[in-house]
């Protein structure tokens, strides 16, 4: 294992870096597309889309609430798939583990947004920020589960130990997604039933509202992709630093908390 001088920030075993950061031309394009998507979503969500007959203006909150919830589901699903590939493939590539970790981190962010924004919508629609309803409670439980997953990733040990134990946890945690999604069917719930992903395929929604929701999903998907790519590259760099010199990584962590 090579070691790097703890006092240097640029000297490396093979020479100083000429590039820093995790950006490439493709990620810059992706980031620009995500920003366009956000602006478009804000314009349609806050301006062009009509008020709802029943929910009135509060329906505008759903254009960020619903996509963030869907993307959190997707992020946790990607975490499970990447974890499964890591565990069951012969190669046990840590790239899959890092993809799982990055996706879970972004998923937790989106799930947190879902809960906070959902509480704002609930206050306008139900008159309360929070209710111990089946959908809300199971969503909060899933949020806490994935915070636990991220905590497990930060426990000590080798990269392989981290990958193995977090992969097992990810494969168990993903079972919560169907529970959360169908909680409105399984139990009596204050939360409304699905409007778009209905089993009968009959979407009862105004065209412009549906389009705005679609814009939201696209914008959130672009944000998710951009964040995950950068985060998993950062994790790869962190692992490389760990391999190159544990002392340097510890100094970096200390500097981060100062």
């Amino acid at each position: 294992m090579a070691s790097l001088p703890a006092t240097s920030t640029t000297t490396t075993p093979t020479g100083p870096p000429t590039t820093t950061g995790t950006s490439t031309k493709a990620t810059r394009l992706l980031g620009a597309a995500a920003i366009v998507g956000i602006v478009w979503l804000a314009a349609f969500g806050l301006g062009f889309s009509p008020a709802d007959v029943n929910q009135r203006e509060s329906v505008r909150i759903l254009y960020v609430h619903v996509p963030s919830a869907w993307l959190a589901y997707l992020a946790f699903f990607v975490t499970a798939v990447a974890s499964g590939i890591y565990l069951f493939s012969k190669k046990h590539s840590l790239g899959w583990d890092r993809l799982a970790g990055a996706s879970a981190e972004v998923g937790v962010l989106f799930m947190g947004i879902t809960l906070v924004v959902g509480a704002l919508w609930g206050r306008l629609t139900w008159g309360v920020f929070w209710e111990w309803d089946a959908r809300l409670t199971s969503t909060a439980f899933m949020f806490v589960t994935y915070i636990g997953y991220l905590t497990v990733r930060r426990l000590g040990g080798s990269h392989e130990q981290r990958a193995r134990r977090s992969a097992v946890l990810a494969l168990l945690a993903v079972l919560e997604i169907p529970l959360v999604h169908w909680s409105v069917k399984l139990w009596r719930s204050l939360h409304q039933d699905a409007t778009v992903l209905r089993p009968d395929g009959d979407v009862k929604m105004n065209g412009l509202m549906l389009f705005t929701l679609f814009v939201g999903v696209i914008a959130f998907t672009l944000m998710y992709m951009w964040l995950v790519i950068h985060r998993q590259r950062t994790m790869a760099a962190e692992d490389a630093l760990d391999d190159a010199g544990l002392d340097l990584a510890i100094a970096d962590r200390k500097a981060e908390h100062q």
Partner: peptide, 17 residues
């Protein structure tokens, strides 16, 4: 994420990226 990426990668050679 970007700030963390910049800080961490500044300590790595290009062939580790």
């Amino acid at each position: 994420v970007l700030r963390r990426a910049r800080r961490v990668t500044s300590r790595l050679p290009d062939d580790a990226k």
